[in-house]
């Protein structure tokens, strides 16, 4: 993953990025349908999406599943990782398929990751394994309440 902000996006790229953040059809020819709304054909949309995905402008394209609706759970977790061990611990944490995202942040608690599991009790199993593998306490911050949001990136 690159963090480089400088990329060339033309008006069509921007229109695609803006429109497809909101949704994509579940229909037999969805690229045709989504393209029609943007004034481009399916092939153009597919070619551009592939390019935007390959160059890292898009991180994911597809269904976003709600782990809670699947009977599972999400949990935000944090660790205070010594600088000298940071990359090694990151590799150990990231090796767990249940770890969906992981960020380095500016704080004594400097590693923040989200665990997604099918069953709520599996969260503690994963945090126990990470503690055993790293010798570092994992603080779990499960959501108690989610507040409605309506955020999107205007490109």
């Amino acid at each position: 993953m690159t963090d480089a902000p400088a990329i060339d996006l033309d008006a069509i790229d921007r229109a695609i990025l803006n429109a497809l953040q909101d949704g994509f059809p579940i229909t037999p020819q969805p690229f045709e349908d989504a393209g029609n709304a943007l004034g481009i054909d399916a092939e153009t949309l597919i070619v551009r999406l592939r390019r935007l995905h390959e160059d890292g402008t898009i991180t994911r394209f597809g269904p976003f599943y709600d782990a809670a609706a699947l009977g599972g759970a999400f949990c935000l977790c944090a660790m205070a990782v010594p600088a000298a061990e940071f990359d090694l611990v990151a590799a150990k944490v990231n090796a767990h398929p249940e770890v969906a995202h992981n960020y380095e942040r500016t704080h004594h608690l400097n590693m923040w990751f989200v665990i997604a599991t099918e069953r709520p009790e599996q969260i503690a199993e994963v945090t126990d394994r990470i503690e055993a593998e790293t010798g570092i306490t994992v603080f779990a911050f499960p959501k108690l309440q989610e507040f409605f949001i309506n955020f999107r990136v205007a490109v």
Partner: peptide, 13 residues
Amino acid sequence: IRRVALAPNHYRL
């Protein structure tokens, strides 16, 4: 399914 969509890389944008 919350939605079918793309997720942009905020950093790149």
